[in-house]
Amino acid sequence: MKHLFIILTLGTIITTAMAQEEKSPERILNQAAEQYSQADYERAIELYQSLLAQGYADPKLYYNLGNAYFKNGDLGKSILFYERAYLLQPEDPEIAQNLKIARARIRDRVEPIPLLVIVKWWNDLKTTSSASTLFLYSTILAWLLAGAIFLFYGFRNVLLRRVVLALGIVLIGLFAASVALVQAKNESLAAEDFGIIMPFEVIVHSTPDATAVESFKIHEGLKVEVLEEKDGLVRIRLADGKQGWISANELVLI
């Protein structure tokens, strides 16, 4: 019985391994690139989507899919996938540039409201650095802090201890901030509160009820912050602070 079980398990492992051999992600990516170069973007999109369905979430994949959607004239989806790629790897110049190229085609021009300097720094650090970069910063700070603690408790020289104490307090603050930043980045990777508008034009209502008054219009590809959800409706906020309700199926969360 036990032997049979082992054989069965081995068998499954081998067959799944073979199945994966046949459709390795590299091969699918190459196939998709082939289709893309022949301007068959629909087919390329299908292939990339099949990889997504397998559970892959690589910035390269998102980027290539964004390109295919862009070439296929699907601005909303291309921005969605460029945004997803950018979230994972903001340091990549090609991703950042393609996102800008696609964004330039959005019909809406939204002027962001100025934020507090400290909030702006926080947001900029979070959006323009990848999780691993932020984690590297926090690890460096952890080592510096450990060094300061060693100097403080290991030596009796008064002047040295005073300097190290002051430095240590600053380091504790920076370290705590960096850990919080890594956590915030992790959270935004798990579930981003932002979505991309998919239909060509969306009317934003001032209230969630049926008799709501039309407030303003937004267009395909625009990035909006999702504040709350109620009965298939979501309250959104634009970068310039304007708020309103739209149908939840009119946007896709990043």
Partner: peptide, 26 residues
């Protein structure tokens, strides 16, 4: 206008492992 006139950068090559969902955060 500058971005409007630009074409998107080419596809990225498949080199190295692809990351899976859940492997993205620290």
């Amino acid at each position: 206008v500058d971005y409007l006139a630009m074409d998107v950068n080419p596809l990225k090559q498949a080199d190295g492992e692809l990351r899976r969902r859940g492997e993205t955060a620290v």
